[in-house]
Design a protein around this nucleic acid. Structure first.
Length: 915
RNA sequence: AGUCGCGUAACUCAGUUGGUUAGAGUGCCAGCAUGACAUGCUGGAAGUCGUCAGUUCAAAUCUGACCGUGACUACCA
């Protein structure tokens, strides 16, 4: 083996071996009684792997590899979604470089071009997943626009329509005037922006009075259909029912009363524009107000508005209207005002509430069973407090706008005849049959929201609506691993559609992971320039390249300087290459139930070191066992029994944490076992044991047995390095499997749990630690051999001493261990305690006694504090009578042993002081 | 405004039904070329568990208030 762990070679090697050998196939273990499945939340086909993906993919891969190792037939279903708007924009941008628009190309040709693009560039994220070692069944990779999945979409649409759960209607939607389509709430980013509050005077008809209304969007006044005041507002009560002359128009609009109005805000009068505001729309419904649309699709003033403003962009119109009002002395004042502005996440343009014809899913009948499924425990949220968020949203759920005015996506299977009558079916032929021959039909131009097809993902990928064997074997899936940001948009909808169409919940558990933030706890975003690319952590990146990456193609180039400084400060030397395993271990270790996860490069470095540690421990084992034949039945020593016992405890703990979705605790458990039990103690113990003819064979067998089981335990987290070491160990183990990935996950062997060896090794560790402590604090060189005396030992001590004489000498670097009787006068010594047994290291020629006196005093002081604590408790009458006897007894024992130690050390102190 | 969360060592975080001498990694201090590993080894320092009150024999853990901080949802036109 190489002296240092070098991840890159190893990773490249096994990426090929695993995939070409079909090791990720869900056909493996097909005879198994149990099946396990996870669907990958399909990433956007235009996207690339970000930290959130890498984190969640690591988690899913741990579960997948674990269950595969358990012998279950395991499917991790991969694929991507077609990301309607994003994908269309990518290709449109390409066309724009040649000064062509999609309209010039035409719908059909344009869609062909998108498919071409997908063919060439749609694989970024899947190739990055391969870098990470994600063991998905690539043969089953799916895309939401695949034929089968598209059939599923069509069938769901038609069925819902026929049931009356899909309808078409004119409603207010979030309209992106650049993309010219409705967008979902998810695609609208609300941010605080500085704006103004314009106070405008509306003259009251047949009166000298005016009403002052305040607005943040003056241009919408052209579409006002009322002014509202609070019914109890004494200032305006007398005006309710009167009319207002709407300035700049020739219209009169009523003054209405509605308790939605906040008397405290602004002037207490609100202009009502039902066609351009969600709240106003609702109020309009309540009061039967006219809905006056004043905008075009591009958000220009339309032809229904006064001629002066027709054709003006909304913001130009705003300026003009303010100016005109001012000229008419109808503008009272302008106040600066902070408001939430909705912007499109793709275009950054202000989103308009806009009246359009759209398709909707009537959601309540679907939502009810979805709520029930979580209430009755068919589905568990992990951690469970996410249930509240789920219920909270589901209880206020609105009908779902599923149509989008774009070209890339599943075309809505609806046709209209010349009278506008709607026909829905899977093909023109069928529709024609419904409509009758000769009727001219025109298909709806719109496509479906991408989330509509994503909602079917857990069963459409398994072949639904066909009754495939995969569907019956793998549905419902076991767990969905995802972030909380899409609980509403995706998770809830999968539950609704799964129950409705696949007849069962789509998954039993929903593991909601935390969100990966940067070192300062900031959300990673391109505009902030603080994103980390998981691939850069694997391969490393220079500061120069990182700067370039972070500052190119920015939406706000003015941020570049700040980002540059920040990056130079945080990554002065760029990012070193850590390898995929170190990154994966980091993600597993970070996977606690917290909501935010601050990503710290130091953690990755620590786990890279862990990989190196594992590597070198293996190297040690191989060096020691090279060319030896292993006798698995050789008698084993207490140390061997101890490490085997520790291994069983480790397995028990690992299984528990896996079942609880606590990968952080799982990885911590393994880390501690490998580093502190196996390397720090067992490998050191093995050195003298291997030198001894009586213990050599057993130690050899145990070294390799524990190593190879440990590799299997670690494999789900760090698959590459473990697979490589496994191969190197091949000649020493009698594995049935050629590869670690197909090796059975180790079973817990309770017969190997050995309490006695644990007690004995704990004693031995206490002994060695005591001596090291004296060395450390007395500044005695680690290389110096010391004589050691023992006093006040009982039978057990005696026994352990006999068993471990040579081990102790080796580990604590002692030249001799001599027992003294109680009556023997020990030389002036430094002292440590193991239980009640005294370990004495003569000071002669090593240190002065003042130093030892100081050390003992410090130690006694520490113990005295504890003594106070314990005796305080025990002196409390209420504690002794109120607490369970076992707790009291434990406290008494602690007090006793502390008092004993104080007295022992005190005696020693006296002795030295008086000498 | 509503909902949910967080506040434990210098930093990042564990601490699962109340009983631990409150832990880990990183960082820090001191020492070390020992033959698997300096991406290492040994020893050490470091915490009034946000504050205050309450419940309890017993609180980092349960309850309440407050302070600080964050996310999401809905917004005041």
């Amino acid at each position: 083996m190489e002296k240092t762990y070098n991840p890159h070679q190893i990773e490249a090697k096994y990426r090929d071996i695993w995939e070409q050998g079909d090791f990720f196939s869900s056909q493996t273990n097909s005879q198994s009684k149990d099946a396990y499945s996870i669907v990958l939340p399909p990433p956007n086909v235009t996207g690339s792997l970000h930290m959130g993906h890498a984190f969640q993919h690591t988690i899913m891969d741990v579960f997948t590899r674990y269950h595969r190792g358990k012998g279950e037939q395991t499917l991790w279903q991969p694929g991507t979604d077609h990301a309607g708007i994003a994908t269309q924009m990518v290709v449109e941008r390409q066309l724009a470089q040649q000064n062509i628009t999609r309209h010039e190309v035409g719908r059909e040709k344009f869609i062909e071009k998108i498919w071409d693009w997908k063919q060439q560039s749609g694989g970024t994220i899947t190739s990055q997943m391969r870098r990470l070692g994600a063991s998905v069944d690539w043969d089953r990779e799916r895309f939401t626009m695949d034929e089968g999945l598209s059939d599923a979409v069509q069938k769901v649409f038609i069925d819902l329509f026929n049931e009356g759960l899909i309808y078409r209607g004119k409603r207010l939607v979030n309209w992106d005037p650049v993309l010219l389509t409705a967008v979902s709430d998810l695609e609208v980013i609300n941010t605080e922006e500085q704006g103004s509050l314009w106070h405008m005077r509306y003259p009251i008809a047949d009166s000298d009075e005016v009403l002052v209304v305040a607005t943040t969007r003056p241009e919408t006044m052209l579409g006002d259909s009322a002014v509202a005041v609070h019914p109890n507002d004494v200032r305006y009560k007398h005006l309710i029912g009167k009319m207002v002359n709407l300035p700049l128009t020739k219209r009169q609009i009523p003054i209405i009363a509605d308790d939605y109005v906040d008397m405290e805000f602004g002037t207490g009068c609100v202009k009502i524009t039902p066609a351009h505001d969600f709240n106003d729309y609702e109020m309009g419904q309540r009061h039967n107000l006219e809905v006056i649309n004043i905008l075009t699709d591009e958000a220009k003033i339309n032809d229904d508005a006064p001629t002066a403003y027709q054709g003006l962009d909304r913001f130009v119109a705003r300026k003009q209207i303010v100016k005109d009002l001012e000229a008419l002395d109808l503008l009272e004042k302008i106040e600066p005002h902070t408001l939430m502005t909705p912007r499109g996440d793709r275009t950054n343009t202000v989103i308009e509430p806009y009246m359009t014809d759209q398709w909707f899913v009537k959601i309540q009948p679907l939502a009810d069973p979805a709520i029930e499924a979580v209430k009755n425990g068919d589905i568990h949220f992990v951690p469970s407090n996410w249930e509240k968020t789920y219920f909270n949203w589901m209880d206020n759920i609105q009908d779902w706008c599923i149509s989008r005015q774009i070209w890339w996506g599943h075309r809505i299977p609806a046709w209209y005849d010349e009278d506008g009558k709607i026909y829905v079916a899977s093909s023109l032929e069928e529709v024609q049959q419904q409509a009758g021959e000769g009727v001219v039909l025109r298909q709806d131009e719109d496509v479906l929201d991408t989330w509509f097809s994503s909602a079917l993902w857990p069963f459409s990928t398994l072949g639904w609506p066909e009754k495939t064997p995969e569907l019956s074997r793998f549905y419902p899936t076991n767990v969905l691993v995802t972030g909380f940001d899409i609980i509403f948009f995706w998770v809830a909808r999968m539950i609704m559609f799964g129950l409705k169409f696949a007849g069962d919940v789509p998954f039993k558990d929903i593991y909601i992971t935390g969100l990966i933030k940067d070192g300062q706890g900031q959300k990673m975003s391109k505009s902030k320039g603080n994103v980390l690319d998981p691939i850069d952590l694997i391969d490393g990146i220079t500061l120069q390249d990182l700067l370039e990456k972070r500052t190119q193609g920015m939406m706000q180039p003015e941020m570049a300087e700040k980002i540059k400084k920040q990056t130079e400060k945080e990554f002065a030397d760029g990012i070193p290459s850590f390898g995929a395993d170190a990154l994966r271990f980091t993600f597993a270790a970070l996977a606690s139930f917290g909501r935010d996860i601050k990503f710290d490069l130091k953690r990755v470095e620590g786990y890279r070191n862990f990989c190196n540690k594992l590597w070198n421990a293996s190297r040690f084992v191989l060096m020691k066992l090279e060319g030896q034949s292993i006798n698995e039945n050789a008698p084993i020593s207490t140390s061997d029994k101890w490490i085997l016992s520790r291994l069983q405890h480790t397995k028990i703990t690992v299984e528990k944490h896996l079942a609880d979705y606590r990968l952080d605790l799982m990885s911590q458990t393994l880390y501690e076992f490998v580093w502190h039990d196996y390397c720090d103690w067992y490998l050191e113990l093995s050195k003298p044991l291997l030198d001894d003819d009586n213990t050599r064979a057993g130690t050899q067998a145990t070294l390799i047995k524990v190593l190879s089981e440990t590799l299997t335990l670690l494999h789900p987290i760090i698959p590459f390095i473990t697979e490589e070491i496994f191969e190197q160990c091949q000649s020493l183990t009698e594995s049935d499997s050629e590869r670690l990935i197909t090796t059975a996950y180790p079973e817990i062997d309770r017969d190997l749990i050995c309490k006695n060896s644990e007690v004995e090794i704990a004693w031995l560790q206490g002994f060695v630690l005591g001596i090291r402590q004296i060395r450390g604090e007395m500044n005695i060189a680690p290389g110096k051999s010391l004589p050691c005396f023992i006093q006040n030992n009982n039978d057990t001590d005696q026994n352990y001493l006999g068993n471990n004489h040579s081990i102790l000498k080796a580990l604590a670097k002692l030249e001799s261990i001599t027992q003294l009787s109680d009556s023997d006068e020990a030389a002036e010594s430094a002292t440590a305690l193991v239980g009640e047994m005294k370990i004495l290291i003569p000071l002669a020629g090593l240190v002065d006694k003042e130093q030892e006196i100081a050390r003992l005093n410090k130690e006694i002081e520490k113990l005295a504090k504890q003594q106070q604590q314990f005796s305080g408790k025990l002196n409390n009458e209420k504690f002794v009578s109120g607490a369970p006897e076992a707790v009291v007894e434990k406290e008494r024992q602690k007090l006793h042993s502390v008092e004993q130690a104080i007295s022992d050390l005190g005696q020693q102190l006296d002795k030295i002081s008086t000498l």
